[in-house]
Amino acid sequence: MTPAAAVPRASTLRQVDRLFRDRPVVPLVALLALLVLLYEVARPGVVGPTWASGIVAFAIPLAILAGCQTLTMLTGGIDLSVGAVASMAGFVTATFVAQPGGWELGVVIALAAALAAGLLNGVGVGVFRVHPLIMTLGVGLVVLGLANAWQIATVTSSTGVPEQIRTLGSDRFLDIFPYSLVFFAPLALIILVGLRRTGYGRLLYAVGDNPIAARLSGARAWQVLVVLYMISALMAALAGILLMGLTNVASVTLADSLVLPSVAAAVIGGTSIMGGRGGYGGTLVGALILQVISALLTALGQPEAVRQILFGAIVVLVAAAYTRVTAES
């Protein structure tokens, strides 16, 4: 009979399935290793500590922005304003370089502005129940407009990327260890531990999994969401400032191209866009995977158009494959 014959194959498959479901990071790390191997084949001899530290340095702003998406996606939301908020934060910081108070004041003002944008997102989503997609897209546009207005207002003053931020963003200790990692590692740790070991982290999952159950247990979702979108905006601002240091560019659209990859990194990392499932560990690997794919496409010397097509296609494929293997049979 067929079922008997099918048993061994089915059980192996099931083991793989179970591995994917219970430890989604394992297959992702395998995929990452495969991509690195491909890179080594495509450009022999390049892969090494210096190459890796470059990948990590470029992946950090993406990983922070993907953190914003992970946290908001856990509640069934999304934050599309991160691109505008990140760019704005970098740009505002840059305009204060030659002002009294210096770039430090600029950072404080940029973070305050980001928190205000986050508050707006949070109140819109949490209190007025606007769909997060619409709300954050709208707020992103408002932030972009305000940043443009700020650009016009400060057109006479000189802007520049502060030396210290450039060091933090792009320099490496002994040419290997990116300084930005010193900044990023504690942040990542806070998110990882926060999601697992704090009541607030549990609530993000609870609100995303079943808002009715969370409410009946006494959780006030609006409080959770207002705080969440403020955290997200704050993280986006920090990512923007780092990105400015990394690229040595201050522009009001600097981080726009990272919005889609930030969502993709979270999805590839196993966070469900419907809420209630996922975590930051997968997202970190997801961000690295995207960074390596992008480096690989550059290394293959393809024109920009081909790179875009391949990048988009690969993101969709990985996300689709991932959803398929982790779904309940």
């Binding site: 704090t198 009541g199 609530l203 999952y205 609870a206 247990s217 006494g218 209630g276």
Partner: peptide, 16 residues
Amino acid sequence: LMQRSVRENIALPYTA
């Protein structure tokens, strides 16, 4: 919370 553990479901009111 169907996707969460027994533990998280029982502990929910404490973290709410």
